[in-house]
C-alpha cells in the first residue's frame, strides 16, 4: 500500500514537471528589411506590354427553323391510307 502511494505521488510530480516545461515563450524579430532589388526571380515575364481586346463577331444564337430533309411522315401516312 505504501509503495502504491509513493508511485502515485512520483507520477503526479513528473506530470507537473512536464507541464512546466511546455510553458516556453518564443520571440520573433520585431523589424526586418527585405531588399527586393537584390532578389532574383527565375523565368519569363508573360505580362503583355499594353492592354488589347481582340475584335470578334458578335455571337448570335440560331433557333432551329423548320427543315424538310425527309418525307417519313408523308410516306408512312400513304401506306396507312392504302388499305
Amino acid at each position: 500500500m505504501k509503495i502504491l502511494i509513493i508511485i502515485t505521488a512520483l507520477l503526479s510530480f513528473a506530470a507537473h514537471a512536464q507541464e512546466e516545461k511546455k510553458n516556453v515563450i518564443y520571440k520573433y524579430k520585431e523589424y526586418e528589411i527585405i531588399d527586393l532589388g537584390s532578389l532574383e526571380i527565375k523565368g519569363q515575364i508573360m505580362a503583355p506590354g499594353d492592354l488589347t481586346v481582340n475584335e470578334r463577331e458578335r455571337q448570335t444564337f440560331k433557333r432551329s427553323l423548320l427543315e424538310k430533309n425527309y418525307f417519313d411522315f408523308e410516306n408512312r401516312r400513304e401506306i396507312e391510307n392504302l388499305r
Binding site: 417519313d72 410516306n75 408512312r76 400513304e78 401506306i79 392504302l82
Partner: peptide, 13 residues
C-alpha cells in the same frame, strides 16, 4: 406492286 411500294418505304425509312 403494293408489296414493292411498302418494301420500298421500309428501305426508304
Amino acid at each position: 406492286a403494293e408489296a414493292a411500294l411498302i418494301k420500298g418505304t421500309i428501305r426508304n425509312l
